[in-house]
Simulated assay, not measured.
Amino acid sequence: MSMNRPVATALAATLCLLTAACGASASDDKASDSTAGAAASKTGYPVTLDNCGQKQTFEKAPSRVVVMNGASVAEVSTLLALGLGDRIVANQQGYGRSEVPGRAAAIKKLPTGDVKLNEAYDIPREAMLGLRPDLVLSVTTYGFDEKNGFATRDQLKEVGANSYVSPQGCDDDPSEMTVADSYRLLRDMGKIFHVGDKAEELIAASQKHIAAVSEKVKGGKKPAVMVLFSNMSMGGNDFSSVVANGIVNDILTKAGGTNAFSNTTKGTFADLSKEKVAATDVDAVVVIAYNDPNPAAYARKLLKEFPQWPAARKNAYVTLSDSMYLGPSNDLAVERIAKLLHPAAF
């Protein structure tokens, strides 16, 4: 007996409903898995990252990103470098300056979420949850510490938001940070937002630039450099914002220099007396500006205060900002410092 296709289909459906005997076959399962795998391959999702001991799974690219302050611009600069500024619904980072043309202005234009900040100049728990983020970026785990009034990573997960702590921020100790950590941040954001090709392009360009600069200064004398933040106090001594360890040392090495105060502490910052600073030979000074409109004035004042330094006799200083710390522009700092330390090589 012949049967037209619609009737046959209806009958098959009726038999399935009556007998519950129409489970998918093994071949159907394989086909379904294959289809799902192909879809995942095409979209790049899901993506899972192990971040500070927590697995964060992204089913799609985040569209409501909150960037916490943390006295950094690493995260917001990385997102902008990757062309992801339109994903940011609230940004609290900003130095007011940048070695990248237009970046400081671009950061200033980003939305802040119009939230009332806490005493740490960052986003408290209730305000954070009210922003309805799907990704929150923090420099260190401090930004997710409940004791400080912040939303925890678990609380964010409960409202559907992933969280990310930047490289070397898991134990809140950036003293071991290197330029490789800046590349890791780029790669991680590339994976999360499915712009890995762009991230690798930026990394390759930075590596090529640094390699070319390092080659020019290779084998030469390694001047001793003082790196410090301008007009900033972090301790009890006269010079408490001297950077002794961390990514700055990797940048100095690549630029053909050394940190004059790296042996004064194992931590990131050295809290130094004026006597200790005066007794150290400093060949050049790098002043990092954090919301300082005139870091050059600070540098000149510093050199005048210590006329015995070789740096003072040569007026050897450079002012930098975001390129000296975690972020996508470390190659610019390497070049600027190398030109200061080894002008004849350029």
Rank of each mutant, 00 (worst) to 15 (best):
I107H: 14
Y121R: 15
T43M: 00
L320T: 05
G190H: 10
T258G: 01
Y45E: 14
A38L: 11
T152M: 06
F306N: 09
M226W: 07
N118V: 09
A13K: 10
G143S: 08
D33G: 03
N148S: 02
N263G: 12
E275K: 09
E201M: 09
A345G: 02
P62A: 04
T112R: 09
D114E: 14
R184C: 05
S63K: 15
V67T: 02
A20Q: 11
G256M: 03
Y290T: 03
M189S: 07
S63A: 15
A38R: 11
L80A: 03
V213P: 11
Y290I: 07
F239N: 15
P295W: 01
V287D: 02
L49W: 00
S34H: 11
R153W: 01
R153G: 01
A20C: 08
D271E: 09
T253N: 07
F229K: 04
D145W: 03
A284Y: 11
D188P: 11
V243Y: 10
T43Y: 01
D250K: 08
A270Y: 07
G256W: 05
K254N: 12
A345P: 01
F193C: 09
K221G: 03
P307N: 04
A151W: 01
Y290N: 05
V243F: 08
A297G: 08
A24Y: 07
P307T: 00
L228A: 12
K108Y: 00
V136Y: 05
G96L: 04
L135A: 10
A10G: 06
P101M: 07
A211Q: 00
K274E: 14
L117Q: 14
D29T: 08
K274T: 14
D322S: 08
M189K: 04
G149P: 02
A12V: 12
S98V: 09
L18Q: 14
G23F: 00
V277Q: 02
N291G: 01
M234V: 02
V242Q: 12
L252D: 10
G85C: 03
V165R: 13
K339W: 08
S214H: 04
V165F: 09
G23E: 06
F346D: 10
S98A: 14
Y290D: 06
L110S: 11
D250E: 07
L326Y: 02
V195E: 10
P343A: 14
K191V: 00
G246R: 03
S25W: 13
S233L: 12
E176Q: 15
M232G: 03
K266G: 15
Y142D: 10
H342M: 11
S34I: 04
A104I: 08
R187P: 03
S163P: 02
S41Q: 13
Q168F: 12
V179D: 03
K314Y: 05
P46A: 12
N51Q: 06
D114A: 14
K304P: 02
G113T: 12
A120D: 12
N315D: 15
A204R: 10
V67A: 06
E200T: 04
N118E: 06
G83P: 08
D292H: 07
D114T: 12
D154I: 06
D145A: 05
V47K: 15
